[in-house]
């Protein structure tokens, strides 16, 4: 009875003995207690001491940088004088880069909404809980499906000439295709990549695109959102 309960809820019932006992039962696996996660120590003082050190190191780092780097301050805001280029804060520069390629509704609304929704629903997707490696089951069928998605995405991005999005997409897509054909024993990278679930691939693609777009928007965009090399000052 106890055992059945564990399987259904995924939680240990005797929380008093060991509140951290967690059990997952998924397809193709058997029920297994996964509590072999080492001994425990008191929060006070062990964790708090480390937090205090972390705080001190953080403050030291902040102070040292703040002494040599001044927070930017430009001229008084002037609605009549648009700087060229006018840039949003750096964490929105990926979005601004997207706006350069896609209509505002797509880049400004649909994509951010999808990203936020996607992030929220990740834990509720079954496929992630399994953590099943991507090519484990029905690889041919999956490969055809994924290849079609990558091809479609490539055509779509190429149509909009959005090559700063296309580049990381092709990179990750290429890795995915490579991992399909590679033999796990061939190299450690192949073994690693073949062991990743679909959610890992999606997130990695997102991280790659977001990073490339933000870097491009921050450093490689000049007047008129044209491509510039950051080591060459504008106008010089």
């Amino acid at each position: 009875m106890t055992e059945k309960n564990k399987i259904e809820t995924g939680f240990a019932s005797d929380a008093q003995k060991n509140p951290q006992r967690v059990v997952f039962v998924t397809r193709n696996t058997s029920a297994k207690v996964t509590d072999e996660r080492g001994p425990q120590v008191m929060t006070y003082p062990h964790l708090l001491l480390r937090e205090a050190i972390a705080l001190q190191v953080l403050v030291v780092a902040l102070v040292l940088v703040a002494l040599f780097w001044d927070a930017p301050l430009e001229q008084l805001a002037n609605p009549l004088l648009t700087p060229n280029p006018a840039k949003a804060p750096w964490y929105f520069l990926g979005l601004q880069e997207l706006l350069h390629y896609f209509p505002p509704f797509v880049a400004g609304v649909i994509i951010p909404t999808l990203v936020v929704l996607g992030l929220i629903v990740i834990p509720y997707f079954n496929v992630n809980i399994e953590g099943a490696p991507i090519w484990e089951r029905r690889p041919e069928q999956h490969f055809r499906r994924y290849a079609a998605v990558i091809a479609g995405l490539t055509v779509f991005l190429a149509l909009f000439d959005a090559w700063t999005v296309l580049a990381p997409t092709l990179l990750i897509g290429g890795l995915l295709v490579w991992s399909y054909y590679a033999k796990p024993e061939q190299s450690r990278a192949a073994e690693y990549l073949r062991g990743r679930p679909l959610s890992w691939w999606l997130m990695t693609w997102f991280v790659a695109v977001a990073m490339i777009l933000t870097l491009v928007g921050t450093f490689f965009r000049g007047p008129g959102w044209s491509w510039v090399w950051p080591w060459r000052a504008y106008g010089a």
Binding site: I53, Q56, V57, V59, V60, V63, L64
Partner: peptide, 9 residues
């Protein structure tokens, strides 16, 4: 780290 903290502050 405390000593460094004071010095830097």
């Amino acid at each position: 780290s405390s000593l460094l903290f004071v010095a830097v502050l």
